[in-house]
Design a protein around this nucleic acid. Structure first.
Length: 287
DNA sequence: ACCCAGGGTCGTC
DNA sequence: GACGACCCTGGG
């Protein structure tokens, strides 16, 4: 059954910023400027109006609870931005540019597989692969005459062979997704249990043991799947922006990762992950 | 047509 | 610890 919900418009909530800052892959823009996405078994359309943000869709429980949780409405982003703006003028500028960014409360399993797929890949292709994977192995949900597909559960995805995955366009990541799925399915790694582990470094170690999960993917899983805001994923864009702003090496590919890590920790502290999102979005959109 | 880069990871030296 | 290889696709 279709449900509706709306909230008053707030400064730290802009659809473009939230869905195009690189944290998620399953939201698409509609002709009217609204976005439709599938997450945690729900199909949702979100529209920004003059004074309101309107949510509507097919939800598996109360839409208000789902929206509050997924969009993290109980986290005070004004407070976070105030802290980060005081770091330096670069952060100030990037926050001005992406002031509506929020870190979503995504499904850990989906984040894990999505970011394994992201390795040495580009965003349009990543989105395409995840969409095909969902069509093939997820559950169908009909909404306003269109078919949507949930991201496959562990059980569903484990039905895919390496060859099946290759057919979907995963390329050399087929084996990585296959092996990691197997490890999660047989319980060797329990995603619900790692949520309970407080020590972020301990969790990172466990994640990095999974095929296809290196330092970058592990950090993205920590930030986007486990909301560890102190984690600072370093990809080509972040390396680029950190070099441009602070390090100023002639060859950005030669910049020492440790140097970036220490810089981020020193400047952004426990909000490094959120700072990373403002910087990533700023650099990518203005490149 | 051709080349290159893309939210890196892995195996090898 | 430093390379190079790696599927595939969109953009120059």
């Amino acid at each position: 059954m279709e449900q509706f919900y709306e909230i008053k418009k707030i400064d730290s909530f802009k659809l473009k910023h939230i869905f195009e800052c690189g944290q998620c892959f399953r939201w698409n823009k509609e002709a009217d400027g609204s976005y439709t996405g599938v997450f945690k078994g729900n199909v949702l359309n979100v529209k920004e109006e003059k004074e309101k943000i309107k949510f509507q869709g097919i939800c598996n429980c109360n839409i208000k609870d789902i929206v509050e949780d997924y969009f993290d409405l109980n986290t005070n982003y004004e407070e976070i931005k105030t802290k980060l703006r005081s770091v330096d003028d670069f952060l100030k500028e990037s926050i001005k540019f992406g002031n509506g960014i929020r870190i979503l409360n995504q499904d850990l399993w989906e984040v894990l597989i999505s970011f394994i797929i992201s390795a040495n890949n580009n965003i349009p292709r990543i989105k395409g692969i995840i969409e095909k994977m969902s069509c093939r192995y997820g559950k169908k949900i009909e909404y306003l005459g269109k078919d949507y597909y949930t991201f496959p559960e562990v059980e569903e995805l484990s039905k895919a062979s390496i060859e099946d995955l290759r057919q979907l366009g995963l390329g050399f990541r087929d084996k990585r997704v296959y092996e990691t799925t197997k490890i999660i399915k047989n319980g060797e790694v329990n995603l619900n249990k790692i949520k309970q582990i407080k020590d972020t470094n301990k969790v990172r170690e466990i994640l990095e043991d999974l095929p296809g999960v290196g330092p970058k993917v592990a950090d993205c899983v920590l930030l986007f799947g486990l909301k560890r805001f102190e984690v600072f994923p370093i990809d080509v864009w972040v390396r680029r922006v950190m070099n441009d702003l602070y390090i100023k090496n002639k060859d950005e590919t030669k910049v020492n990762k440790k140097e970036i890590e220490e810089l981020a920790k020193m400047k952004y502290a426990d909000l490094a992950g959120i700072a990373q999102q403002y910087l990533f979005y700023w650099k990518r959109e203005t490149a």
